[in-house]
């Protein structure tokens, strides 16, 4: 956002104008301030408040009757093995997936923008545009379809993956249940999510890297920096803003992960190893008719989400605080 400040005399006139309530001004405030605030209050704030209240009831969901039970639901959560498993899974997703996805996306972005010949103009790999389109392609497919496709790919006896593994002589994978084995279900599911998101972040990083002046690269090259060195020391620090935004946004998405996980393993996977909080919440509400308890899971999920965002902000602040040479640090 930008703000313009005019010369002093105009500023005074503006100040005087501020005190008069003209129709223009009132309508401006009404349309641009009160209306959005009202919408925010009705559709954003009040559901949160309502949810917080429901979280402290034993509401069953199918009648208007409910008893206030205070913090009982939250206390119950602390000893609910299934919920704790789901929370641990969500934490694992948050810890692993954003890093993995962004590192992959960044690597692809660097290669297609600056991976070309080391001599001459800074260019991407030959045919970089093609790879860019290929990597973006999965992002245009809806999550539910991605899940359905991969559920078929992972099929133990009829799937492409085991078919391919058998073809290259790995017969021990005949009938191997990738999303049905307690050790592989989570990594296999994570791969699907990574596959779905990597293209979008590649495009984001490509745009950010293209914004870096070519002179910076040329100077680094003259100093003898290779491709890896320019990627880490030139590209990465200058796209850190994008990385931070991506990190938070991707984190919020993978804490949810509902669509992918539900399509791949509707019941939470072997030994609940792919169960997410959102799935557990959905099951408590809609399969077991415990809406109050499910809502308390939602409140905890909101808290975890905020905590995650806070941690990421803190980490990036620490990283940037040390590196004062970065002109673009805001």
């Amino acid at each position: 956002m930008t703000t313009t400040t005019g010369p002093g005399s105009r500023r005074r006139r503006v100040a005087r104008f501020r005190q008069r309530l003209t129709f223009d001004r009132i309508s401006f405030v009404a349309v641009f301030l009160i209306l959005p605030l009202a919408i925010f209050g009705v559709f954003e704030l009040s559901p949160y408040i309502q949810a917080f209240y429901y979280a402290m009831t034993n509401w069953g969901g199918f009648s208007a009757e409910m008893d206030f039970v205070g913090f009982d639901n939250f206390i119950k959560l602390t000893s609910d093995a299934k919920f704790l498993r789901a929370a641990a899974n969500s934490a694992l997703l948050c810890a692993v997936l954003p890093t993995l996805t962004l590192v992959t996306a960044f690597a692809i972005a660097v290669v297609v923008t600056t991976g070309g010949p080391i001599i001459g103009r800074v260019t991407g790999l030959k045919g970089g545009g093609f790879y860019r389109v290929i990597s973006f392609f999965p992002y245009t497919v809806p999550a539910i379809v991605i899940g359905l496709i991969w559920a078929q790919v992972y099929d133990p006896t009829r799937g492409l993956l085991n078919g391919f593994l058998k073809l290259i002589g790995l017969d021990q994978f005949d009938g191997f249940p990738w999303i049905g084995n307690v050790h592989t279900a989570m990594p296999a599911s994570m791969f699907v999510i990574l596959w779905g998101f990597v293209g979008f972040y590649t495009i984001l990083f490509v745009a950010a890297i293209k914004g870096i002046p070519a002179e910076t690269y040329e100077a680094a090259r003259i100093d003898g920096a290779g491709r890896f060195r320019t990627a880490v020391s030139i590209a990465l620090p200058q796209v850190l803003d994008s990385v931070q935004t991506s990190y938070i946004y991707l984190g919020l998405t993978v804490i949810d992960s509902f669509v992918y996980m539900r399509v791949l393993n509707a019941q939470g996977g072997p030994d609940f190893s792919t169960l997410t909080i959102t799935q557990d919440l959905h099951m408590e509400a809609f399969t077991r008719g415990q809406f109050g308890y499910a809502t308390s899971m939602g409140v905890v999920l909101a808290a975890i989400t905020m905590l995650y965002a806070g941690i990421i902000f803190l980490i990036f602040r620490l990283i940037r605080g040390k590196d004062t040479d970065l002109g673009s640090a805001a």
Binding site: D155, T157, N181
Partner: peptide, 9 residues
């Protein structure tokens, strides 16, 4: 049993 049912639709 045909193996892999836990990972098959």
């Amino acid at each position: 049993f045909i193996p892999g049912g836990s990972g098959q639709q």
